[in-house]
Design a protein around this nucleic acid. Structure first.
Length: 565
RNA sequence: UGGGGCGUGGCCAAGCGGUAAGGCACCGGUUUUUGGAGCCGGUAUUCGGAGGUUCGAAUCCUCCCGCCCCAGCCA
């Protein structure tokens, strides 16, 4: 990973640095990214991925990929595949260290047995409601289950029979015997195993008992000799339990460290809610370009470099925070500005006839592919008597400071000639401008004039007879409120009430320069003065170009015009 | 009125007793064949509040206030 910005230090790096210095774990650093395969990865996961793999990279360590697949009814193979594809696309490699918690089911079962033998776990036959009632509340201690003092042999037998499928779901659970009076609810005899007759995506029907997160996660980390187990803040209360298992079982002491998950303005990060958008058809799928998912962002035209840079810039801390979407967009623009090939595309075309330009003449003009990168070279763009320019680049009554085309004014056509507006025609029916007549200055070929006169405006354009038709999707934020969840809760409304009806606008009849015929998915393009675009990997087909706008360019004029109002 | 965390500019975030980094956003200027990009400059007398310790506190102590998380056989 070259040219990567140096991430500023953070409390986790300090902990690791101190651990290495003190010789803990022999100076070894090993982390892991442990997704549950029950949905697609989103930008919040990207933060965690960059953190875990980044730490391993920077401290000469390793980072494992481990699927936390202990709940068969929510998990699916589709997600284990998408997750691997997304992590790889982000630029990280787990080599041969791909693990599944389900691969540890036998070992976990043995550890549970050992806990029973040590008198630290028991089979409880209370039902779910009873267990909840016995747990107590935040302010009242819990009560011990009447089954809490079953003997070791009975517990072992019951647990074996749970595994053997002798009981129905909910009949029994295995619980740790810790402290029903603990102020930390997680320590009030937490459930370790529950019975579920469900098809598991990997173990099929081999198992009908499944370990709970706390038990499986702690031990899995230890099995893999994870030195620093990094998770989000809501697991802080689970740490005593995480440590309890490893201590009681005398296992490798992985250390859990918690950091604040990412929140991003104008979107949501909850897997459950994202799933809801997909299921209800409010978006086209997990990879809808408006989704904050890795798949959605990839399809939108985000680069892995931009996302990694973003992850480095937002930092890692324990404070709840919501990062401004503007920072993400900035990271994308900064990356794409360096590498995106420039093209001209007219999204809302209006025809211009250059009345003094010879009919039937076509000349090829040289255009720079990327002013930020000489190596990108140049291309030839066809010019002719009739061209399209952007409708908003012409005003019958130009406002102050407007220096684009208007009756009598002169502008530069990028890479081409200076043109001056001599006439225009309205469409009676729509009241819109139908056609503009201009004259061009033959001396200004290439966009310069011998007399060095200044033209303030430069417009992009496309030759009518050479233009390619294209469809362009313009995206805006998925929600209208920076914090739609909080807003919905505050106003007792539905989250969906704050979906942005303008989050996706489809433009048809756009005119793009002929070179774009060679456009391919996965490439990044800049449409001059408009923004960064990419070919839609799903909708676009040869002869039917569909571009997605990844992010706009900064638009100073829009800002000025807004202020004038 | 249980426990666990967190409070530094609009949004992130360094800072770890020696007198408030950096980024984004914003505002100026400059430059420009993208009103893009670039470049230069500006924006916290102050670190949730109040006391205290100290020659000196965002950093240490005390109290107060605010926000987040926890009562799944979810992760």
């Amino acid at each position: 990973m070259n040219g990567e910005r140096e991430a500023t230090t953070n409390f986790i790096r300090e902990i690791i640095t101190a651990d290495i210095k003190s010789g803990k774990n022999g100076g070894r650093v090993q982390t892991r990214f442990p997704p549950e395969p029950n949905g697609y990865l989103h930008i919040g996961h990207a933060k965690s991925i960059c953190l875990n793999f980044g730490l391993a990279r920077d401290f000469n360590g390793l980072c494992n990929l481990r699927f936390d697949d202990t709940n068969p009814i929510r998990e699916d193979e589709e997600f284990v595949e998408s997750i691997q594809a997304d992590v790889r696309w982000l630029g990280f490699d787990w080599n041969d260290r791909l693990y599944y918690a389900s691969d540890y089911f036998e070992r976990l079962y043995d550890c549970a047995g050992e806990l029973i033998r040590r008198g630290l776990a028991y089979v409880d036959s209370l039902n779910a409601e009873e267990i909840r009632a016995y747990r107590g509340t935040l302010t009242e201690p819990g009560r011990e289950s009447p089954y809490r003092d079953r003997g070791v042999d009975e517990n072992l037998d019951l647990f074996r029979r749970m595994r053997a499928g002798e009981f129905s779901e909910g009949a029994h659970v295995l619980r740790a015997r810790i402290d029903m009076k603990s102020p930390n609810l997680n320590m009030r005899d937490p459930t370790l195993y529950r019975i579920k007759y469900a098809q598991h995506h990997r173990t099929g029907t081999d198992w009908c008992i499944f370990p709970m997160y706390d038990f499986a996660h702690s031990l899995s980390d230890s099995f893999e000799k994870i030195t620093h187990s990094i998770c989000t803040l809501e697991f802080e209360d689970h740490r005593p339990l995480y440590d309890w298992f490893l201590e009681k079982l005398e296992m490798f002491p992985s250390r859990q460290i918690e950091f604040a998950r990412l929140n991003l303005s104008y979107t949501i990060m909850s897997k459950r809610l994202l799933q809801g958008l997909v299921a209800s058809g409010r978006v086209s799928g997990w990879d809808d370009p408006r989704m904050p998912t890795i798949a959605g962002m990839r399809r939108r035209g985000y680069s892995p470099e931009a996302i990694r840079d973003f992850a480095d810039r937002i930092g890692v801390a324990k404070r709840d925070s919501t990062v401004d979407l503007a920072l993400l967009e900035h990271c994308l623009r900064e990356d794409l500005n360096q590498r995106a090939l420039r093209f001209m595309a007219v999204l809302d075309p209006v025809k211009v006839v250059i009345t003094n330009y010879p009919e039937n003449q076509v000349e090829m003009l040289e255009a720079v592919n990327n002013p930020e990168d000489d190596a990108a070279g140049t291309r030839q763009v066809p010019f002719s008597r009739e061209i399209y320019i952007e409708r908003e680049d012409f005003r019958v009554d130009p406002p102050k400071k407007y220096f684009r085309l208007s009756p009598g004014s002169e502008i530069r056509l990028k890479h081409a000639y200076y043109i001056r507006c001599v006439d225009f025609f309205m469409d009676e029916a729509t009241g819109r401008v139908k056609e503009i007549h201009c004259t061009y200055d033959p001396e200004s070929r290439g966009g310069w004039s011998p007399d060095n006169r200044k033209v303030k405006g430069t417009s992009h354009w496309v030759s009518v007879q050479h233009a390619l038709d294209a469809q362009v999707c313009l995206f805006d934020t998925l929600f209208t409120d920076p914090d739609p969840q909080a807003r919905a809760a505050a106003e007792e409304k539905e989250l969906y009430d704050f979906l942005n009806p303008e989050s996706r606008k489809v433009l048809t009849g756009c005119k793009v320069e002929p070179a774009l015929k060679e456009a391919v998915p996965g490439e990044y393009y800049q449409f001059l003065r408009q923004g960064y675009f990419c070919l839609d990997s799903v909708e676009s087909h040869p002869g039917n170009l569909v571009f997605n706008r990844s992010v706009t360019l900064r638009d100073t004029w829009a800002r000025i015009e807004n202020k004038l109002k």
